[in-house]
Design a binder for these strands. Structure first.
Lengths: 110, 110
DNA sequence: ATGGATATATCCATTGCGGATATATTAGGG
DNA sequence: CCCTAATATATCCGCAATGGATATATCCAT
């Protein structure tokens, strides 16, 4: 299942903080990457559909305070599989970063 | 230009240690990832061709000691652009790892 | 000399990306 | 109240990347 595509990894990472709706994921990814990664709707909703099929995420039926809600929204959360996959991918990336650091390709420890 | 595909990143990382030939890159990626990432010839040579076009790598004319050489081999090295791109991608990944760690998705510092 | 590993190359089906487009709803200003 | 912009989801489609299959040639050890 690994490596994950950047889109899938960003979506999982955004959901690790708690459930979110599609558009919210898009915004969080853009703000997190300071606008460097702009996920268009095709990528977002296409990825979400594939991730639902793969069992990485689940649609949540819980709605927040109706005053803050929007009836159009569909909320998603990590599945336990999704959390495990995210963990494994983060570990894989961490190993890559360590290797890059060993090759003097990075500034010192964050 | 970022994010890089896993194949391109692995190739750049393998070349950061010094110039290598295609097959050697394949072996290094497989051993580095403990067999988790197996880069087939289609991916390797296809990626190399694209990376030459993009100016990330250059073919090297220098041959090692003829006793250790193999006339079929084609050696590649990082270009200065390739090194800068690799640096930027490593930094990007490092930021992702930091974010993952903040979300308690990783074991402590390596 | 023969076979297996080494080495490069191309083809192609499948998949993922991402811009364009469409449509509906919500919120806010005039 | 109305109109617009932002929000929100969804699909289509061209393009690029992946990776297995295939092909071919060379090197090395037995």
């Amino acid at each position: 299942m690994l490596p994950l595509t950047p889109a899938v990894f960003h979506i999982l990472l955004a959901l690790a903080n708690g459930e979110k709706h599609g558009y919210g994921i898009m915004q969080e990814v853009e703000s997190f990457t300071q606008g460097q990664v702009k996920m268009g709707p095709g990528t977002l909703y296409g990825s979400v559909k594939r991730m639902l099929t793969a069992g990485l995420i689940e649609e949540s039926e819980e709605r927040p305070d109706p005053a803050l809600d929007d009836s159009r929204r569909r909320y998603y959360r990590l599945s336990s599989l999704g959390r495990r996959v995210l963990h494994a991918e983060a570990q894989r990336l961490s190993d890559l970063v360590t290797a890059a650091r060993a090759r003097h390709l990075l500034n010192e420890m964050p």
